[in-house]
Design a protein around this nucleic acid. Structure first.
Lengths: 230, 230
DNA sequence: CGACGATTTGAATAGGATCAATGGGAGTGG
DNA sequence: CCACTCCCATTGATCCTATTCAAATCGTCG
């Protein structure tokens, strides 16, 4: 890993308060690796060797069962993933693949567990991160259990709209087929869900979305502070 | 709290390795409270005042949106709940109600955060507990996203069957209406799912279930190590 | 140009929910 | 002890949501 990159990593919130010795020990045996798009990084049954930190690119965490496959969540830079698995020392529980060419910092799980014990600041931040991830999955679980497909899409659009500046338009950050999987539906059904939202002022042109009737859209979406990410 | 009860609590795995001073500080301001059945303990929007530990009884964590309600998970003694919320110092994110008369140890969330910083053994165990809860929600999320209602029921029966001794029979530990909510379906649909499983050797008599064709049941259930709890 | 994959649309089907009605305990009060 | 009530569970009928299968369009890339 280059020195400049090491400094970038060092500046990440989760590492920023660590003692230098502990940080160096944590990164011993770590490496920053480049992956092309559409590469499987690990499978849910693999034993957790590394805590991953996505520096650049995009990663999908997904799961399979029967013959079905579903997106668990999308990871965007800069963020850790599979922290829980790295702490528990078992299987990853989720599979991962790159959606774009990506750079990923891979830290031996063993080092993470050691650092948790040695460095109080790191332990504190890792715990908060983990608790936050927990609430993230809880939100996703509520989302799919308590809402219909159209409601999930409507709320997704509202969240993206806010994140992208609340200016009446937004751009889908992923392919529609991936979005469908994130929202727990088939690509065909996503197409139809967009059609259903047309009377609510949702205009679709490829990845470009315009929201013309925010009030109507919110009426059908019924957004909830405790489901939709801030 | 009585001395005998305090000792029971002290012996719980999550506390067993704590220094006595830290344990005493953690329990300062805590109380063990009795609740009758069907009482709401807190709502998802409430600020997290306490880490809860269910000593006796049964508790349901649930969530609401639109006009719908869904069970997130059931808590059985002895187990902590809302650990993540207690660490983050925000809203509970889930609501809770007793399903039976219950005794619950309530520890001020502030104390938990302090203990995490002061006591390494407690911090270590709390982190593992949290990571384990995280994987629990991930499993639930996979379960509902990748399986049909009948498959969820079939796998639920297989898990309960193992937990209860793998002797060809099991007893449902909750009312069917609650089970339906846990499995993400309506009570009517649960009834029909049981009917669907009849040709697979599932005989239902109230809460008593007999499994006569384990192989057939497994064929339709397609159990997965990474979805179904051990 | 031609192949491939993403997206959309249509038609048919399956999975679940809703509404309504009935039967069956458990608990209550007379 | 019995009648009554209430709630759970089951069953039927119907409706709605979402998936599947098929086909057409479109854009990208070699």
């Amino acid at each position: 890993m280059r020195e400049s990159e090491k400094e970038t990593v060092r500046a990440l919130p989760i590492f920023s308060g660590m003692f230098q010795d502990n940080f160096d020990a944590l990164l011993a045996g770590s490496f920053l690796q480049r992956f092309p798009a559409s590469v499987v990084l690990f499978s849910e049954s693999d034993l957790t060797d590394f805590l991953h930190i996505l520096i650049e690119g995009q990663v999908e965490l997904f799961a399979s069962a029967n013959n079905r496959e579903g997106t668990m969540t999308l990871i965007k830079p800069v963020a850790t993933f599979v922290l829980a698995s790295a702490l528990i020392d078992g299987a990853y529980q989720m599979s991962a693949r790159t959606l774009e060419a990506s750079r990923i910092l891979m830290i031996p799980a063993e080092n993470v567990r050691t650092a948790m014990l040695k460095d109080r600041d790191f332990a504190q931040k890792a715990v908060l991160e983990l608790a936050s991830c927990y609430h993230g999955v809880v939100r996703a679980y509520k989302n799919i259990k308590l809402r219909t497909a159209v409601e999930r899409l409507a709320n997704y659009l509202l969240v993206q709209h806010e994140r992208q500046g609340t200016n009446g338009a937004l751009v889908l950050p992923v392919e529609k087929r991936t979005l469908a999987s994130v929202l727990g539906m088939t690509p065909e059904n996503l197409s139809r869900a967009f059609s259903t939202l047309k009377p609510y002022g949702v205009v679709v042109d490829g990845p470009n979305i315009v929201l013309n009737k925010m009030d109507d859209l919110k009426t059908i979406a019924k957004p909830s502070e405790f489901i939709d990410a801030n």
